[in-house]
Structure formats: structure tokens, C-alpha cells
């Protein structure tokens, strides 16, 4: 209890590492978002003229401005991409919940042995590459793909799903489903069965006790799952890029394009800053929820 010096010293290495490779780069993004694009390498201005000393830094500071942000505001494209990201993430999360909740509920109701096997079965695909999982859907959804082969076989007209919003939703659900299923399952699995018996005993039929007891008690799991899906979905790049086609706009893809295709680093940085500001609220919510869960578990 007395001296925790050794344990505290353990913090030094990761602290320094994260300071240099996480916190500082972050400040760079912020700085760059106030800079202007330039045809140079690196492709932005101003640069700090270290040889000029303090004057150089002062000159540098005065050259920073909000011009990039003004451009973001005036250009509809960014706003559209931004809003569409939020919409994709919100609807995707909701769909994940609708698909995932029944799975989690079913798993929690199985015998303990079956549960463990099912748990493994749900997690297993997610140890394989994310990219491969998204790629697998291309072969299914493309016009001459497996989906249309199946539809044709039972005499239905083919659909063109690839490069539509529907394909993005399918990809999002597929990739993020376990992030929804696992937290909900964890809560449901711990739920005391005698609570359902008590509800039945007090006159509540099964469908009603599901809404009166099971659902309210699983809300912490649902919140955790929803945030775990929503936060990365907003910044998602691979799914919209591979399944959504050119007309699907999402903010992660915008940053990528600005950066690699347009070489507009300041814009990419500004978009990243805005994206991060949006995510601050759900991230804080998530961390608070986790802290609460940790406390309740004790």
C-alpha cells in the first residue's frame, strides 16, 4: 500500500511512447488544419523557419488561419459527406441492433456448453481479415454474383446491389455485428432467471416480461454495443470504398481521397478534426458507461 513507486515507474515508457507517437501527431493534425495547401514537399505552408528563432515561430503563428475550415463550410461536398457518414453509422447501428439482439438473446438462453461454442462461432470470423470479409461480399453482391445466381435459380429478377447504399449497410452489419452481439450477450447471460420467473409469477405473460424485465435490464449492453458500432462506423473507410461505389460519400473516404488523390493535406486534417469533434460525445459516453459497468461489476 505504501510505496507504489515501482508500479508508477512502469508508466514512463508507454507514457513517452504515446506522447511522441499519439499526442504530438495529434497536435500536428490540428496545426495543419490551420495551414494552407502548397505545391511543395511537404505540400503545405507555412513551415516553421527554425533558423530565424523566435521571429520564425511568430511568423509561422501569424500565417495560420481558419481558411481551410471556411472552405469546408462553403463546400457542400464536405457537409454532405459528413451528414451521410452520421446517417450511415446511425442506421447501420440500428440494423446491427435489430439483427444482433435476437442472436444474443438466443445464445444467452442456450445451455452453457452450447453457449461457449456459439460464442466461439460468432467471434471466429472476426479473427480473419476485415478486408477479406468485405471482399467476400463483392463476389456475392456484384451483378453476376452469387446473390443474383440464387435469385435467378428460383425464378426471380436479379438485383444490382453492389455500389449502392444497401451494399454499404450489408457490409457494415457484417463487419460490426459481433461488437453488438457480445456486449448484449454478456449482459443477458448474467441476467438472473428468477427475475423472469418472478415476473411470470406476478402475472406477466412471457412477451410482456421480455419488454418489462429482459429489455430494460439489457440496456447497458445495448448502449455499449451501439457505441462500439457507431464510433468506428462514422470513420469507416473500407466498407464504403469497396461496396459503396463512387457515389457513396463518407467522411473516412473523404479524408483518404483528399490526402492521397488530391494531396490536400490541410483539408484532410481539417476534416479529421471535425470528425473527431463529432465523436467526442459518443466516446466520452462510452468511457463513462464502461467505468460504470466496471464499478457495478465489483
Amino acid at each position: 500500500m505504501k510505496t507504489k513507486r515501482g508500479e508508477r515507474l512502469a508508466a514512463i515508457a508507454p507514457f513517452l511512447w504515446l506522447g511522441v507517437f499519439f499526442l504530438f501527431p495529434f497536435a500536428l493534425v490540428l496545426k495543419l488544419s490551420f495551414s494552407d495547401q502548397a505545391l511543395a514537399m511537404p505540400p503545405y505552408a507555412p513551415q516553421i523557419d527554425w533558423s530565424a528563432g523566435l521571429a520564425g515561430i511568430r511568423a509561422f503563428m501569424s500565417a495560420l488561419d481558419l481558411e481551410t475550415y471556411a472552405r469546408l463550410k462553403s463546400d457542400d461536398l464536405y457537409l454532405v459527406a459528413y451528414l451521410s457518414s452520421l446517417r450511415f453509422a446511425a442506421i447501420g447501428t440500428l440494423l446491427c441492433l435489430l439483427v444482433g439482439y435476437p442472436i444474443a438473446l438466443g445464445m444467452a438462453r442456450c445451455a452453457p456448453n452450447t453457449r461457449n461454442i456459439l460464442l466461439l462461432a460468432v467471434i471466429l470470423p472476426f479473427w480473419t481479415s476485415f478486408l477479406i470479409r468485405v471482399y467476400a461480399w463483392i463476389a456475392i453482391l456484384k451483378p453476376e454474383g452469387l446473390l443474383n445466381m440464387g435469385l435467378e435459380a428460383i425464378g426471380l429478377p436479379g438485383l444490382s446491389v453492389l455500389n449502392t447504399q444497401a451494399a454499404v449497410y450489408v457490409g457494415l452489419i457484417y463487419c460490426y455485428l459481433p461488437f453488438m452481439v457480445l456486449p448484449i450477450y454478456a449482459v443477458l447471460e448474467k441476467q438472473d432467471h428468477s427475475l423472469l420467473e418472478a415476473a411470470a409469477d406476478l402475472g406477466s405473460p412471457p412477451w410482456k416480461s421480455f419488454w418489462q424485465v429482459t429489455v430494460p435490464l439489457s440496456l447497458p449492453g445495448v448502449t455499449a454495443g451501439a457505441l462500439l458500432c457507431f464510433i468506428p462506423m462514422v470513420g469507416e473507410f473500407v466498407v464504403p470504398d469497396l461496396l459503396g461505389g463512387v457515389q457513396t460519400l463518407m467522411i473516412g473516404k473523404t479524408i483518404w481521397t483528399e490526402f492521397f488523390a488530391n494531396r490536400d493535406w490541410p483539408s484532410a486534417s481539417a476534416v479529421a478534426v471535425v470528425l473527431l469533434l463529432t465523436l467526442v460525445i459518443p466516446i466520452v459516453l462510452y468511457q463513462r458507461q464502461q467505468a460504470k459497468a466496471l464499478e457495478a461489476g465489483r
Partner: peptide
């Protein structure tokens, strides 16, 4: 159970 006119006090209390 939900239609039976008997009520039970559970060993674990099973309070919601």
C-alpha cells in the same frame, strides 16, 4: 405461471 392466483417470494428475492 402468470395466470395462477398464487404468488411466490423467491429465495434470492428476485427484485427487479
Amino acid at each position: 405461471p402468470h395466470r395462477r392466483p398464487v404468488n411466490m417470494m423467491f429465495q434470492s428475492y428476485a427484485l427487479f
